[in-house]
Design a binder for these strands. Structure first.
Lengths: 137, 137
DNA sequence: CGTATTCTCTCTAGCGACTAGAGGTTCAAG
DNA sequence: CTTGAACCTCTAGTCGCTAGAGAGAATACG
């Protein structure tokens, strides 16, 4: 049986976050001591590790809730799981593409403004005048 | 003089967002009609276009406030502007790197789980067991 | 001039995923 | 048995908006 603090260090999830996960129903309620403190089982620890890993991969809380729900039904076909992963991967790829365009534009901005004063700063000019942008956003 | 709606369509910033920007002091207050409706000048429109563009580039509201503050002092040296851009570019690059690692891991997960049932789904297994991950995150 | 429609006003509350702090209680070590 | 760390609940704050209620203003048309 783990205290909430031990569970936090074991999983790398902060104590208030664990309580928050309980509050929103993502992590089941723990047993309590006579003095009302939470005590966690190994099952809780595994579930929280799963949650943390999924969060690091960018899955939303509702997505994680569904993944957990699916994993609780071993007979369920795998397709639903794969769909969630595929959607998440597409979302990540989209974000990468978007950020890459931004990076290019920022790179173009950086360097043009060297040593002058703000009055003729190309960066500020570029920010004010959208038409200088290469790609759409 | 533009109504808030015209300003919204002119800049692509939604009406409630414009009012929000005024509220937090990013966009100065507009003149008002006798009936208390906002009327905007071309200067407001330019400033809002600047804000929108900067937001699209991922600058935070405090960053934008500083950029606007700097641009209001034409004698100010350019270095501060460049620092903000450089920091933002670095942040974007970091995010791209992080997302690229995630994408790789998601790609690895996708495909392994083909047709089976959840009981032996590698995806769920991978999520539960962090040790399978290639890179750190 | 009347009316109908569209726009605008203020205000409050909500989103996601936590995080911070106040003020009080319980546990474990020495 | 005392100390001090860890724990409890609760409220409120973060960021950048977004949504909705209920009411007033502006404009187009007949």
């Amino acid at each position: 049986m783990l205290t909430i603090g031990k569970l936090a260090t074991a999983t790398g999830v902060k104590v208030p976050t664990i309580r928050y996960y309980e509050q929103i129903g993502l992590l089941g309620e723990a047993e309590r001591t006579a003095g009302n403190q939470r005590r966690y089982s190994a099952a809780h620890r595994d579930r929280l590790a799963f949650i943390r890993h999924a969060r690091e991969l960018g899955f939303s809380v509702p997505d994680i809730a569904e993944l957990l729900r699916l994993s609780a039904h071993p007979d369920h076909p795998c397709a639903d799981v794969e769909r969630i992963v595929r959607d998440q991967r597409r979302a990540v790829r989209d974000r990468i593409a978007r950020l890459t365009r931004l990076e290019a534009e920022l790179a173009r901005m950086e360097g043009v403004c060297s040593g002058g004063s703000v009055a003729d700063c190309s960066v500020l000019h570029a920010l004010g005048d959208h038409s200088q942008c290469s790609g759409a956003h």
